[in-house]
Design a binder for these strands. Structure first.
Lengths: 110, 110
DNA sequence: GAAAAACGAAACCATTTGGTTTCGTATTTA
DNA sequence: TAAATACGAAACCAAATGGTTTCGTTTTTC
């Protein structure tokens, strides 16, 4: 039930540079579509489609208000990304080797 | 000179689940293509293409050894991803609001 | 009430993507 | 030296992607 496979996951959602810019923009404040798309060289419709991809990954929330739809950032799903990248942090700066040496010396009682 | 725009950046490279699996696999040890592709339900050629995408993003390094090509993880470019996601960490748990309150109280000398 | 504004839906298009199979070329091995 | 192994290159294909324009609907404004 909780493992609902979204059609667009976080990794896919942030792959596109325009969508990353959208997230940055929306991190500052909630905004309606037209105001958002004023920041991009592509059509409002194109921006709208990107927003839907982000919404499917739950990275943005939409709130209807009269004739406009306001979008805002929901950063929570980015935790998955952070968790993922954190695994590899182990391999930076030879951290793995350091850990291995640590474990070996522990085993020898020193 | 240093700002060479790679055709495939890190964000694009990790968007595909197969490629993420490849990185996990190669984090354990350096491996030749055939051994790698034994872990996947797709053809060796398909795996090879994924590896090239990863190589273009500099996430893997290739080393020729006789008739085989051994691939290994290079985690360094993932830092860019971590930096990117770190920005948004600010918005988790209302950290931004906490920071704002902190700054306001500082300004008032308390 | 008519005009304007804000938006989504739909149809369409070129390019990219992720996969396949087939073939050629080195390098090992028997 | 002949056969087998490891691999990349190339041609091909269906589906997804990122964009467009056009049109309809709802809400606001004049």
């Amino acid at each position: 039930m909780s493992a609902e496979r979204a059609k667009h996951d976080v990794f896919h959602a942030i792959a596109d540079p325009t969508r990353r810019q959208l997230l940055k923009l929306l991190s500052k404040e909630e905004m309606p579509v037209t105001a958002i798309s004023a920041n991009f060289p592509i059509s409002r419709t194109a921006v709208s489609k990107h927003l839907r991809v982000l919404a499917e990954a739950d990275l943005v929330r939409e709130r209807k208000s009269g004739r406009e739809t306001r979008y805002s950032l929901n950063p929570e799903p980015l935790r998955e990304l952070q968790d993922w990248v954190q695994y590899f942090e182990l391999f930076w700066d030879n951290k793995l080797n350091k850990l291995r040496h640590l474990l070996e010396s522990e085993q020898q009682g020193e």
